[in-house]
Each structure stands twice: as structure tokens, then as C-alpha cells.
Amino acid sequence: MKSNTKPRSGLNERRQAFVQAYLSNGHNATQAAISAGYSPKTAQEQGSRLLSNVMVRAMLATKAEEVAAVVELETARTLRHVACVSYSDIGQMLDEQGKLIPIPKMAPEVRAAIKSIEFDKDTGGVTKIGLWDKNAGLEKAMKHHGLYERDNDQRREDLSLQIVLVGASTGAIERGVLDSEGARQPPRQDGRAPH
């Protein structure tokens, strides 16, 4: 027996339009939903729903891989550049006399830390070198290693401990409703307050 249901090609086209708009607009799901033809009134909800859709997530992953391949964006290479900025040492740009090493003679990892170069308009010599923000590089490296997640988990534990301690009034402890650590005690069978 044949099914009378047609494939929802319009839905798939909308999903594809959403994916394309999402990747091109800086990952704004609401605006991508509007671009894909959803109502501005429901675009935020639709964008969120589409991002949780398995098919949309697969399309996003495929497109992201395609883009990365085209621009030769590689995780290992990106992390190497983050490391170059994070661990940069201005001393590696200077010779024994404290003079700037000619830029073409600097090691590639040293050059990777350079953000800008200013030249003297008369002599063509380098007058100023700007470096990428080392703290920003270290922050990116820390995020990559999950160090902020660990820090946030530790803070959540501290916060829950503070809530328990603040919530544990001395009267509740004295009445036996809470133990000394702020945990609720089970009720007694005789109906009296626990001790």
C-alpha cells in the first residue's frame, strides 16, 4: 500500500536556507530564521528549535567542514598560532645588541605574534612593532583546555555550599529540622520534630 504523504521539500529548503543564513550572519539563529522565511514574531523560538534539530545540526556540521576545507582552517594549526601569541617573547625579536632582527630572519613562531608593523616613510626602516594581546591568547588556550569549566564547577560548588549555610538558620538547627551541615533531617514517626 502506498503512502499518500509527500516529502516535505519546502521544509528541507527552509532548513537549508536557515543553515546558510546562520553560517553567514555570525551565528544569529533569530535572524537566520527570519531570512529562511519564518515570522519575525516566532523567529527566536524557530531558530532555537532548528538549532536543536538533528538534521539541521548535521547540515551545519557538514557546511562548517566544507568552509574549513576551503580556507584550510585546521584545529592544530589554529592552536599553534594561539600558542605563538600566548608564549611570545619579545626578546626573540632582538639580537645580542638589542637591535631588531630583520623580520624575514625571525622564526615563523615569533613573526606569528606580530600584529602590526610601522615603517619610517623616509628610510623604510621599522619604527614600531605591535604584538597580539598575549592575555587574549592565554585566555583562548585556557578555554581550549577547559580550565574555565573547572573553575566554574568549583564556583558552583562554593555557591551551593553558601546557599546551604545561609539557609540553615540556627533556629532550624536547634529545633532539629536541619542538621549542623544544613541538611534536612527525616521526620520522626511520632510526629515530633527530629533531633
Rank of each mutant, 00 (worst) to 15 (best):
L147P: 01
K115A: 13
Q20I: 11
I114E: 01
E65V: 12
A172R: 05
V110E: 05
K134N: 06
E174F: 07
V166P: 11
D133W: 08
G47D: 02
A112G: 07
M55L: 15
N152I: 14
Q97R: 10
S48P: 13
E149N: 14
H195A: 04
H144F: 15
K41T: 14
H27F: 13
S169F: 07
T127F: 01
P187F: 03
K41M: 13
L79E: 12
Q46P: 13
V67D: 02
L159T: 13
Q31M: 06
M106I: 10
Q185F: 02
K99Y: 05
E96F: 06
S39G: 11
K134M: 08
E66W: 12
K41V: 13
L100W: 03
E139P: 04
S180E: 09
S160Y: 06
V82W: 00
K115N: 14
K105I: 09
S180A: 11
C84W: 05
H195S: 04
V56C: 02
Q162P: 01
I90H: 08
A33K: 04
G124E: 04
T170K: 15
P186H: 13
L159Q: 13
L79V: 11
D151F: 14
A193G: 09
V110N: 05
G167H: 10
A29G: 06
G124L: 02
A68H: 05
A68F: 02
I34W: 00
P194Y: 01
K134H: 07
V85N: 02
Y148E: 07
A29S: 07
S24G: 09
E45Q: 14
H195G: 05
G167L: 08
E109K: 14
G171A: 08
K128F: 12
A29I: 04
R77F: 00
D120Y: 00
Y22T: 01
Q46E: 15
L60Y: 03
L138A: 06
V71S: 07
T30S: 11
T127I: 04
I101A: 08
Y87P: 00
S35P: 14
A33L: 01
A112R: 05
L79I: 12
D179Q: 06
T75I: 09
P40Q: 05
V82N: 01
Q44M: 12
D179I: 07
K143T: 09
A21I: 11
A36G: 03
T127L: 03
T75L: 09
E149P: 11
V54A: 03
G176K: 06
D151Y: 14
A168K: 04
A17D: 15
E109Q: 13
R111Q: 02
S39E: 10
G167Y: 07
P40M: 01
A29E: 03
R77C: 01
D95C: 00
A112F: 03
K2N: 03
V54M: 04
K143I: 08
V67N: 02
G191D: 00
A58N: 12
S116L: 10
I163V: 15
R8V: 08
E45F: 09
S39T: 07
R80V: 06
T5G: 08
M59A: 02
Q97L: 10
G10W: 01
A141M: 09
D158K: 15
G47M: 00
Q92D: 09
Q97F: 06
